[in-house]
């Protein structure tokens, strides 16, 4: 899935080419669905999020620019994650059923198979994270991959919410500084 070809597809979509849209869907939907279902855990919610994501891509393809949005996958995954987290937060507020106990031990770890093929940007980010406290990094990864709030991470790890907030903020600050030093 070359970034350049995805860019061409998005350019085509911005010009109203449905064929380009279909190609983009076929090339990227499994990845976006993987992101959504990892956060939401529910098939029907993940389908709604991916559905909405592609409609947004169709309507806003002309707004995509590599300078501001990053790679096409970065842009599309950001749309998917933001939508998934919005849905997750509303779901939590509506107090829908929580996951059962045996399922309530989600991994905050990245997928090892996907990690085997990683971009320079991911390698740089993982290098930054590898220099930090594992417990702190775990908080960040649980939030990113599972869509957990501070409170949910605190409950999961059995530590005070304030500790989680502090860990997350310090980790984010260090990531920002590390990537800036790295020139990324």
């Amino acid at each position: 899935m070359a970034g350049k070809s995805l860019e061409h597809m998005i350019t085509g979509i911005a010009n109203g080419e449905r064929r380009a849209f279909h190609q983009l869907y076929d090339a990227t939907s499994a990845k976006l669905y993987g992101v959504a279902i990892r956060i939401l855990k529910r098939r029907e919610l993940a389908e709604e999020v991916v559905h909405d994501t592609y409609l947004k891509i169709w309507h806003h393809a002309s707004e995509f620019t590599t300078t501001r949005s990053g790679s096409p996958m970065t842009w599309m995954m950001s749309i998917t994650r933001n939508r998934a987290i919005d849905v997750l937060r509303k779901r939590t507020e509506a107090r829908l059923p929580e996951a059962p106990e045996h399922q309530d031990t989600p991994s905050g770890d990245p997928d090892p198979l996907a990690l085997a093929v990683q971009s320079a940007e991911l390698r740089a980010l993982m290098a930054c994270l590898s220099d930090l406290e594992p417990d702190h990094v775990k908080c960040l990864l649980m939030a990113y991959y599972q869509g957990f709030t501070h409170e949910e991470i605190a409950e999961e790890l059995g530590v005070p919410v304030g500790t989680v907030k502090s860990r997350v903020r310090r980790t984010l600050a260090k990531v920002r500084d590390c990537l800036a030093d790295d020139g990324t």
């Binding site: 939907s29 996907a114 940007e121 991911l122």
Partner: peptide
């Protein structure tokens, strides 16, 4: 900064019906 983390999420094949729903709209 954080988007590269999403690369590490494994793909999951969505149901075929989802593609049809999206295509029906577009």
């Amino acid at each position: 900064r954080l988007a590269p983390l999403a690369e590490a999420v494994g793909p999951v094949t969505p149901p075929r019906s989802l593609r049809q729903r999206v295509v029906d709209y577009i």
